[in-house]
């Protein structure tokens, strides 16, 4: 038992020192995540205290010397401990927790704001995310771009298995369930990049079902939205690449103004997006080429067949073109 106390402290220090991270619930970047982080720290402090006191009491009781208690004393001690520790302590703790937790939950669900929330539909595929903005008529893949300080209403859809939409730095998660549309209110209070991930186990590619969240200022967001509504112009040097793309890839992948495929992720902004395994890293022609040569085994057989049909020079061409597709 003597080992535990330093362990608890060590982990505490570890927590305070290393809470940051692109996907850390302890580095909140929005009101919902803020509240949850506060709930956590409050509970952590209180429960650590409870645990230490309990352990201390036990160790003390184990070491106590002297005569064992007499029968009538024992009776009194017993009821004191059981009523005090077994009834009153948990009842009070529960009352406090519920008094804090229930309103907090209510607030998180509604996330009141004077702005009308921006609706974004999140579609979970196996195993990538598609986000569409019904008001603006935009669709992106693997990247969720939102304006700062604006309430967002995520509407979650899936037509396959159950997934969960989760951006820890913004707030809690919600399951995406076939046949239902669940909604989640989120809001970001600072601009920048963060990371989201599917939290409900969804099969082989579960670990890679990540997405990047890009929080822009409101004006930047408006500009971004506008850009997303324009067709992509293909420079003359990339015309051959586009031709190859049409033969091998366009059935599934769309690129705004170039192809209108369905089933696979939209590639219009691919060069601004995280590489599947490495967030904060952009796709480059080298990485795309590598990927085309040995696609990740979790991709379906069609993708693998299509990429294996590409010659080295075709891969190079396509990669060079895709690298220019920024948002």
């Amino acid at each position: 038992m003597r080992w535990c106390t330093p362990l608890v402290w060590l982990s505490t220090l570890g927590l305070i020192g290393g809470c940051s991270g692109p996907q850390s619930a302890l580095e909140p970047a929005g009101p919902a995540a803020d509240i949850i982080a506060w709930l956590w720290w409050g509970m952590f402090a209180f429960f650590t205290l409870v645990l230490l006191v309990m352990t201390g009491l036990w160790l003390y009781a184990m070491q106590r010397r002297g005569e064992p208690a007499k029968a009538e004393d024992a009776e009194r001690i017993t009821s004191r401990w059981i009523i005090g520790g077994g009834l009153i302590l948990p009842l009070i703790s529960i009352a406090i927790l519920l008094a804090a937790g229930i309103p907090a939950g209510q607030y998180l669900i509604t996330l009141p704001s004077d702005k009308t929330p921006l609706r974004i539909d999140a579609h979970a595929h196996r195993w990538w995310w598609e986000f569409s903005y019904p008001d603006a008529g935009i669709t992106t893949a693997s990247q969720l771009t939102i304006p700062v300080n604006t309430p967002i209403a995520i509407h979650g859809h899936t037509d396959n298995v159950i997934h969960a939409f989760w951006v820890p730095r913004l707030g809690g998660k919600i399951d995406l369930i076939p046949g239902r549309v669940n909604t989640l209110r989120l809001q970001a209070s600072q601009t920048g990049l963060m990371r989201g991930q599917c939290a409900e186990f969804c099969g082989t590619g579960h670990a890679h079902m990540v997405f990047q969240v890009q929080v822009l200022s409101e004006s930047d967001f408006a500009a971004w939205q506008q850009r997303q509504q324009q067709a992509i112009r293909v420079a003359a040097e990339h015309e051959p690449a586009v031709q190859t793309f049409h033969t091998h890839c366009a059935q599934c992948h769309s690129v705004r103004g170039v192809s209108n495929g369905s089933g696979g992720p939209d590639l219009s902004g691919i060069a601004s997006r995280p590489l599947m395994l490495l967030p904060h890293q952009r796709h480059t022609s080298t990485s795309i080429e590598q990927w085309l040569q040995t696609p990740h085994p979790r991709f379906d057989s069609e993708t693998r067949a299509a990429t294996s049909a590409l010659t080295p020079s075709a891969r190079e061409r396509i990669a060079a073109w895709l690298e220019t597709l920024t948002e």
Binding site: L57, A61, R64, I77, G85, G86, L87, L89, S93
Partner: peptide, 22 residues
């Protein structure tokens, strides 16, 4: 959360037993 109460009762009953004995 309520289920914590019977658990706490047991934990403290054990504590009391140790406390009373050697």
């Amino acid at each position: 959360m309520m289920v914590a109460i019977p658990t706490a009762i047991q934990v403290f009953a054990w504590l009391a037993t140790i406390w009373n004995g050697r």
